[in-house]
Design a protein around this nucleic acid. Sequence first.
DNA 1: TCCTTAGTTCAAAAGTTATTGAACAATTGG
DNA 2: CCAATTGTTCAATAACTTTTGAACTAAGGA
Lengths: 118, 118
Amino acid sequence: MSLPHPTTDQISLPIVLAVLGDPTRLAIVRYLASKEGVPLNCSKFLDLASKTNLSYHLAKLREAGVTRSEAVGTSRLITLRRDDLDKRFPGLLDSVIAAAGTDPALPAVGVSEVEVSA
Amino acid sequence: MSLPHPTTDQISLPIVLAVLGDPTRLAIVRYLASKEGVPLNCSKFLDLASKTNLSYHLAKLREAGVTRSEAVGTSRLITLRRDDLDKRFPGLLDSVIAAAGTDPALPAVGVSEVEVSA
DNA sequence: TCCTTAGTTCAAAAGTTATTGAACAATTGG
DNA sequence: CCAATTGTTCAATAACTTTTGAACTAAGGA
């Protein structure tokens, strides 16, 4: 870990909700959740926004305590802070992700990599 | 009912999250949840914001589908749309309200009316 | 070393949301 | 009818957020 992250008890509910209230960031979180445990780098999200803009949104997610970003070489490995979020706000992340899955207005997650290694 | 409300399936997750991400509105929702079933009028929230500003925030909550506002005389009776939210996004409202209860950065709810009729 | 890849930073512009006060409308009680 | 109560609307402003492009840093491979 290298970049500044809030500790678990510094995570604030209104900030988490506001951060997840942005469609781009919600899509990022859904994608991370669908690949739970697999650290992803920013390039995985380039279909969602420009590189600069992604940097901005990923920083927001990190600063809110929703994701963890670890610098590895020139990459940032990004993971969901599921354990910490579950500890701090039990059930919240699960219900948000489940809700996103049933909101027909939101795009299906992970559509852009249809069996890449088939 | 008189003012425009979205139907249950028009309720959008990012909009609900963004609306609940504002501290004033989150406080309103927590208060409504603590008085579940009792319709409240705007004056109950005057400690949270000015009258004009409340009108704005209550309209946001209504337009997002979080609350229902019914015009009765010169009052608006405001209730949580718990049934609809639970149907649309199961568990979401509960986990948000529970999370708000355990976030020490948020004020305790319903403090300003300490047994009014004691 | 030089080039490429991965991502950040900065400043500007664009867009959105929140807050305010003054004026307004509608209902109710005297 | 008059006045008070309840809440809305409007326009202005303030404050924030998002998006952009150009310039940058840092690591890794040839």
